[in-house]
């Protein structure tokens, strides 16, 4: 029972990280109609920049906090140099150009930080366990990710639902030409939203770094999952991205945790441990296929 609870918490933690990544993606798609494959590169850049800044400041928290404005500026720069020219283009151009950006960023990281991966250690004050229930310890760092992820998700919900910027974001998502005609500085709005998405991606990347490792291409595979999440949730919907991220997080973790034991009942241990993560990935894609057959625009997508 405790084991199940811990694994489900891990699922929540993964889901929140995925939500941070998916939120920026779904915002840029919903408002700018932009398919940004290079969003995973911002996730990677966030982790690398944080790695450097943590080295300089000798403090995880300080380095991580400094990395966020740096990636915001990076996002703004990418938007100004490339993305801005892509909004009016069709999706194929966007796919092509942002695919090029992925190659560029992966190589840039190799030039700056070298081909070997980096590792970030969990900060000392979080390198322990907390008792989430009496007698049930849980790694404090993972718990911190859940807290930060939840706070950011609430902040984002508040931003979108309750602030003037959020009002413009929602208006932009439903009719971008209309709000431009009403005199809203839409270029500035797009730049801000893209920078915001970059910050969320970087936050996800740097928080995930101590659990995995900081390496080239770390954002590429996870990006595909983020795309699956926004497709399941309905493109442009923050709420949809959150719900889908939670579901996907649970499938992934619970699949990894419980499938091996189940598979071992009819296959060898090594085959089971190799097949289990693959099967939990496959389940995620099957879920997406199922949702799309049932609702072609995702769970919370706008009907056309």
């Amino acid at each position: 029972m405790d084991y199940l609870l811990l694994q489900m918490l891990n699922g929540v933690q993964l889901g929140l990280l995925m939500f941070l990544l998916a939120a920026g993606l779904t915002l840029t798609f919903g408002i700018m109609d932009l398919v940004n494959l290079a969003h995973g590169s911002l996730y990677m850049m966030g982790a690398y920049i944080a790695w450097t800044l943590i080295g300089w400041t000798d403090s995880f928290v300080l380095g991580a906090l400094l990395a966020l404005p740096v990636t915001f500026l990076l996002g703004v720069a990418v938007e100004a140099v490339v993305m801005r020219r892509l909004y009016a283009r069709d999706h194929l151009d966007q796919v092509l150009a942002t695919f090029g950006l992925i190659l560029f960023f992966n190589e840039l990281v190799r030039v700056i930080w070298g081909p070997a991966g980096k590792s970030l250690t969990v900060p000392a004050f979080l390198n322990r366990t907390v008792e989430i229930l009496p007698g049930v310890p849980y790694p404090a760092y993972r718990f911190a990710i859940i807290v930060v992820g939840a706070v950011v998700a609430l902040l984002l919900a508040w931003l979108v639902a309750r602030t003037r910027l959020g009002m413009l974001i929602r208006a932009g998502a439903s009719n971008r030409r209309m709000i431009a005609a009403l005199g809203v500085n839409i270029e500035l709005l797009f730049t801000l939203v893209f920078g915001l998405g970059a910050v969320f991606a970087a936050l996800a990347g740097l928080m995930a770094a101590p659990l995995t490792s900081v390496k080239i291409g770390m954002g590429d595979d996870i990006l595909i999952v983020a795309f699956v999440i926004i497709v399941i949730g309905g493109i442009g919907s923050i709420k949809g991205a959150f719900v889908a991220a939670m579901i996907v997080g649970q499938i992934d973790i619970v699949g990894r945790a419980f499938l091996p034991d189940f598979l071992k009942t009819f296959m060898t241990a090594s085959a089971a441990s190799s097949a289990a993560p693959a099967i939990s990935q496959v389940l995620v894609y099957l879920l997406m296929a199922g949702v799309l057959i049932w609702r072609p625009t995702g769970l919370f997508g706008q009907r056309t």
Binding site: V228, V231, A271, A278, M288, A289, L292
Partner: peptide, 27 residues
């Protein structure tokens, strides 16, 4: 049955599905 970006993502996701099947084929 889907349009635009959904089509892009679905074809991508189905390809990933097969990719992970390949990754899982220990034999």
């Amino acid at each position: 049955r889907t349009r635009g970006v959904y089509f892009i993502m679905i074809t991508l996701a189905f390809a990933q599905l097969v990719y992970y099947v390949g990754v899982g084929l220990e034999a």
